[in-house]
Amino acid sequence: MDLSDKRCIPCRGGVPAMGSEEAERLISHVSGWTLEEEAKGIRREFRFRNFAEAMRFARQVGEIAEAEGHHPDLSVGWGYCTVRFRTHSIRGLHENDFVMAAKVNRLP
């Protein structure tokens, strides 16, 4: 199953964060994304022709996040939107972060 076809499973903590080996395996399934913070988070910067396009994209990411109940950190500026995922309740990565990255990659 493609990661983008999966749904986020609520994670309220109490489970260990994903190890770096598993994170390295999953990052290969979400093109353009990189591991950061010693495999405790993932990020991707998307480029656009102007601020309006970047904001439109950020809103689309927000709509997916609300639908899935898993929210990124976004940085938006003229011509870019940086999206970062990390499961805050476990202070690291969970499969949900990669599911969301795959869903964001499907945006136009």
Rank of each mutant, 00 (worst) to 15 (best):
M1V: 15
M1W: 05
L3V: 06
S4T: 09
S4L: 05
S4Y: 07
D5Y: 11
K6P: 06
R7C: 11
C8I: 15
C8V: 14
C8H: 13
C8N: 10
I9E: 13
P10R: 02
G13Y: 00
V15F: 03
P16Y: 04
P16D: 14
P16R: 05
P16Q: 10
A17K: 13
M18S: 04
M18Y: 09
M18R: 11
G19L: 05
G19S: 02
S20W: 06
E21I: 09
E22K: 13
E22S: 01
A23I: 03
R25V: 08
R25G: 01
R25P: 04
S28W: 10
S28K: 15
H29L: 11
H29I: 04
S31K: 15
G32C: 08
G32P: 08
G32I: 08
G32H: 13
G32M: 14
W33E: 07
W33R: 08
W33L: 09
T34Y: 13
T34S: 15
E36P: 04
E38K: 14
E38W: 02
E38Y: 03
A39Y: 07
A39R: 04
A39T: 07
A39D: 02
A39N: 06
K40H: 13
K40D: 12
G41Q: 14
I42Y: 11
I42K: 10
I42V: 12
R43L: 14
R44D: 11
E45Q: 15
E45I: 15
E45M: 14
E45T: 15
E45F: 10
R47E: 10
R47Y: 08
R47K: 15
R49L: 06
R49C: 05
R49D: 10
N50A: 13
F51Y: 15
A52L: 13
A52N: 10
E53V: 05
A54C: 04
A54N: 01
R56Y: 14
R56E: 13
F57C: 06
R59L: 15
R59F: 14
R59C: 15
Q60N: 15
V61M: 02
V61A: 07
E63R: 03
I64V: 01
I64D: 01
A65L: 04
A67L: 07
E68N: 06
E68V: 06
G69N: 12
H71K: 01
P72H: 08
D73I: 10
L74M: 05
V76D: 09
V76S: 01
G77D: 09
G77Q: 09
G77E: 08
W78M: 01
W78A: 03
G79Y: 00
G79W: 02
G79E: 05
G79P: 01
T82F: 00
V83E: 00
R84H: 06
R84G: 01
F85E: 01
F85G: 05
R86E: 14
R86D: 12
R86L: 12
T87C: 00
T87D: 01
H88D: 10
H88K: 04
S89K: 06
S89P: 03
S89Q: 04
S89D: 03
I90P: 00
R91L: 05
G92C: 09
L93Y: 07
L93Q: 04
L93F: 10
H94I: 02
E95S: 08
E95N: 08
N96Q: 09
D97C: 08
D97P: 00
D97Q: 06
V99R: 09
A101I: 07
K103R: 04
K103T: 02
K103D: 08
K103M: 04
V104R: 03
R106D: 12
R106C: 12
R106P: 00
L107K: 12
L107V: 07
